[in-house]
């Protein structure tokens, strides 16, 4: 009977077989996930002739010039500058707006928080398409169409409800004793928010900022709708235009794609723990 308690499995032939099967399946899934990106990396370094002869294999003589060409032809300098402006603006605004709202919904005795949370949940599941047409015409009239500011405001409105819900669940877990003590000591409400709560929830704010950063940088539909001038387009839509213009030049397309991916890939490699925890908690939000 003592055997039942030893959890370590001996490698019987049957268990070995199970192990082999498990790693085979994991390996196949890894191939599915990794190969399309690896092929793109390789192809970004080939000439068009080489891609035609050897579409999936390694490049024989890496042609780094492709990256320079794609950068110049696709005007990526402007695209990146626009993306940086839009991402920084949106993330800052999302962080401020949702931190304030989450504070009210979790750390003040606010009676209507249940209703408001439901409102945010419903708001978050409404399709962009439901408000797209009127918003387009309102933005044109207000002079916000085809401006970075206009896009930043839209991204904030679209992303802030969910960021608020995430931050709220993060803030609820922290005891309120600190704020109460500060209030007893006579600290004003803003002082409580800025110098007591903010330092406590800093890590949660960073996490939602990272999630928002990825979402805004990669966003396509709203950028397509609300930015028309090529010199104002963020990288996602300028890449889309570039693709349409050079639909047969696969090496340049691959190089351009890699350049768009690079900043997020870098952030992911450096901050993958925070990335994963932030994005995971957005998927766990309803449970």
């Amino acid at each position: 009977m003592g055997n039942l308690k030893t959890k370590r499995k001996t490698l019987s032939p049957k268990n070995t077989l199970i192990e082999v099967a498990r790693f085979t399946v994991l390996g196949l899934l890894a191939v599915f996930s990794a190969v399309p990106l690896l092929v793109t990396v390789w192809n970004s370094l080939k000439t068009q002739v080489e891609i035609a002869n050897n579409p999936l294999g390694l490049p024989s003589d890496p042609k780094w010039q492709n990256y320079l060409d794609a950068w110049t032809v696709g005007n990526f300098g402007t695209g990146f500058a626009s993306s940086v402006a839009v991402v920084v603006g949106s993330v800052l605004l999302i962080a401020i707006v949702s931190t304030m709202a989450a504070y009210a919904l979790s750390r003040l005795d606010f009676p209507k928080s249940g209703t408001l949370i439901l409102y945010l949940l419903v708001l978050n599941s409404l399709p962009i398409q439901l408000f797209l047409v009127p918003l387009f015409f309102v933005w044109s009239r207000l002079g916000l169409y085809d401006t970075h500011l206009g896009l930043v405001i839209i991204y904030t409105a679209v992303n802030a409800p969910f960021a608020t819900l995430l931050l709220r669940s993060f803030m609820i877990g922290i005891p309120r004793d600190y704020e109460d003590a500060a209030r007893v000591d006579g600290a004003g409400e803003f002082k409580v928010f800025l110098s007591v709560t903010l330092p406590l929830v800093w890590s949660g704010i960073l996490t939602i900022s990272l999630v928002a950063c990825l979402a805004v940088y990669n966003e396509f539909f709203l950028a397509l709708m609300f930015i028309q001038s090529p010199e104002l387009m963020p990288i996602s839509t300028s890449l889309f235009n570039f693709r349409n213009g050079f639909s047969t030049n696969f090496p340049l397309q691959a190089a351009a794609g890699m350049m768009m991916l690079a900043p997020m890939m870098l952030a992911f490699l450096v901050l993958h723990k925070r990335f994963v925890s932030g994005i995971t908690s957005s998927g766990l939000a309803g449970s």
Binding site: S236, Q253, L261, M264, H272
Partner: peptide, 25 residues
């Protein structure tokens, strides 16, 4: 394995669509 499986998620739609359009060529 988790990191390998997760990596495509950070690829934007435009890039992913262009990668797959090539693979389907």
């Amino acid at each position: 394995f988790r990191l390998v499986f997760f990596t495509p998620y950070i690829v934007s739609t435009v890039v992913s669509a262009s990668v797959w359009s090539f693979l389907y060529s």
